[in-house]
Write a protein that binds this DNA or RNA. Structure first.
Lengths: 345, 345
DNA sequence: ATGAAAGCGCTAACAT
DNA sequence: ATGTTAGCGCTTTCAT
């Protein structure tokens, strides 16, 4: 891209020293040269506007100061906050980030990861689309530094930062039934390989058993596939849920912010009032949740902190070398925020 | 990071050919070798799991297939959609992206841009924090390929993709007065160097003159500095606006989605009903805008397309070489969506 | 305090 | 159809 750029050679000639000395200068090893030389080099570099070629330095030194970041869906607010956490920490530590988005495709995930390794990234933070346990394990065995952000794989294999999904899912369901709701439905897009959705789903089933007979039929999956509990739209699912038992007090737990938004849209279209006709609670506390109706109750996730911490973990791992001890698993706390959408009057 | 990686040398030895032939193979120049050799190389590469070192290839070839992306605030939904557009196009064209966020700091912007150039990116897409006209012009003169996304600098210097801010600002103000509002206030965070805010502000003043005497005093800036029209919080500004003239029908134009959200929060806190006590209209149509109250009227911006197109522009520029013709300026269309927040009954 | 020389892993001009 | 050779721009021994 540069028409022609200044190299270390030109600088060394103009400053009348060897490339070695220039190299020492740009690496801050001033002990190896006289005050005078140092100053002369400084001036020449300034004059020529010399900037070392990072690519060339990397090739030789094997240090790229690059962290790869793989997110499953860059357009979701969750990812953008996660990314901010990651980038903030990395920048602060002198690392740059390469970002890719897999659109929930685990094959793309593999492709992007390999491609980043080819670029000599020093570590990779992954918000995984799933299904890549073996693939990632192999990479780690080969010396690739990996950290998982938000979405988990088997514990004790990778450094992982996530949130307390189990605990909060139990808590939110308990809270709903204790408030007096008699049926709590679980609404989600296709669970797929998404660990977060899978965990919330599993905990939903487990916890619901304390309160209802058959929790399976309270699950509503919105997606394209055939199968039981499977609907093609939020409206259909919502209609099915509300009509299947009109005499009980019903509430919905939405698997994430996107699902929650879709449910609110569907409810509005169907003229179903929240919380008068149905209660609603979800995950993700984005700026608007308190403004819709009497406010939507949510589990507020520490998205930024998950990003920040995962970056911290990976950079520490890089600094100390890969084998200093077993994987670290961090579970950050979410917060249950109760608003009007779950009040029974 | 890799414990030790396979190089072209090992492959060439194991395959009993020269490095050149391997190089030809990995660059797809199969015309230069026999079917037999080709197959032999294929097998060796597979066996050794050889992957070419991108860093080394870049150093020699001067092609990094990397696009730098600088956004002003990565945590804003606007940026994340913009980014998605950029990354989608780049990925599709075989480019990878390096992302940095300046937090609206033009000095950081400079730093990150230089650092990306040091990494030999082939082009840089910038959502500029402002104030870097001269800096960027100089870089472009030196051969750096630059495209601006959303925020503009002087026209006809850089490839630029933005939206029709002037037109839509006129249109939204016209629409408000035509609906019967008698005073339209303009609410914004500190304008700073943000071209989008500055343009909307300028157009607000211009257009408002058609309808009111002194449009200057209808501007409410929320920020830390001292100065006229300057408030420390949205609540104070809102209170000042509403109380300064209680007999007229008032409406607010919020400079962007974030400001809009803040105004709604403030109105709620102050028990000011939208639109009964005050009309509201903003920019950015994020999923929730139709769900708050009777819906918030907005100018919906083509954020994804701005990202996508700016990536297209820069990659075309890269492919054809820097000087093929004068800068391209693209203004994509926004859409005015009228909802309940601007109805006068 | 400074430099010469040998690479890092690859590409490409120029053989043959 | 294949190889030799000379780098890309830097870092890093090993000398002096």
């Amino acid at each position: 891209m540069q028409t022609k750029s200044v190299t270390i050679d030109e600088v060394s000639k103009k400053a009348n020293v060897s490339k070695t000395t220039i190299s020492r200068y740009i690496n801050g090893k001033f002990e190896y040269m006289s005050e005078e030389t140092r100053e002369r080099i400084r001036l020449v570099i300034e004059e020529l506007e010399y900037r070392p070629n990072t690519i060339a330095r990397n090739l030789k030194s094997k240090k790229s100061s690059l962290i790869g970041v793989i997110v499953a869906d860059i357009s979701s607010p969750f990812s953008s906050i996660l990314l901010k956490g990651i980038i903030d920490y990395c920048t602060q530590k002198g690392f740059q980030t390469m970002v890719a988005s897999t659109n929930e495709d685990y094959l793309k995930e593999r492709e992007y990861i390999l491609s980043m390794i080819d670029r000599q990234v020093e570590g990779i933070i992954i918000n995984t689309a799933g299904n890549n346990l073996e693939f990632l394990e192999n990479l780690q065995l080969k010396g690739v530094t990996i950290a998982l952000a938000d979405r988990v794989l088997e514990k004790n294999i990778f450094d992982t930062v996530t949130s307390d999904n189990e605990k909060m899912t139990y808590k939110v369901i308990e809270s709903l039934y204790e408030k007096g709701f008699e049926r709590v439905g679980f609404f989600s897009e296709t669970l797929g390989l998404n660990s977060t959705r899978l965990i919330r789903h599993k905990c939903f089933l487990q916890k619901s058993e304390q309160y209802v007979e058959n929790s399976e039929h309270l699950v509503y999956i919105i997606g394209d596939e055939e199968g039981k509990n499977n609907y093609t739209s939020y409206e259909k699912a919502l209609l099915s849920f509300t009509s299947s038992n009109e005499k009980t007090k019903n509430a919905i737990l939405a698997v994430n912010g996107v699902a929650m938004l879709n449910i609110i849209h569907a409810a509005k279209k169907l003229n179903i009032s929240i919380p008068n006709n149905i209660g609603l609670c979800g995950y993700d506390d984005w700026g608007w949740t308190s403004l819709i109706g009497t406010g939507i109750s949510v589990v507020s996730q520490p998205s930024y902190e998950i990003g920040f911490k995962s970056a911290e973990l990976i950079i520490k791992r890089i600094d100390k070398g890969i084998n200093y001890k077993s994987p670290i698993y961090l579970e950050l706390s979410s917060q249950l925020i109760i608003r009007g959408s779950t009040s029974l009057t």
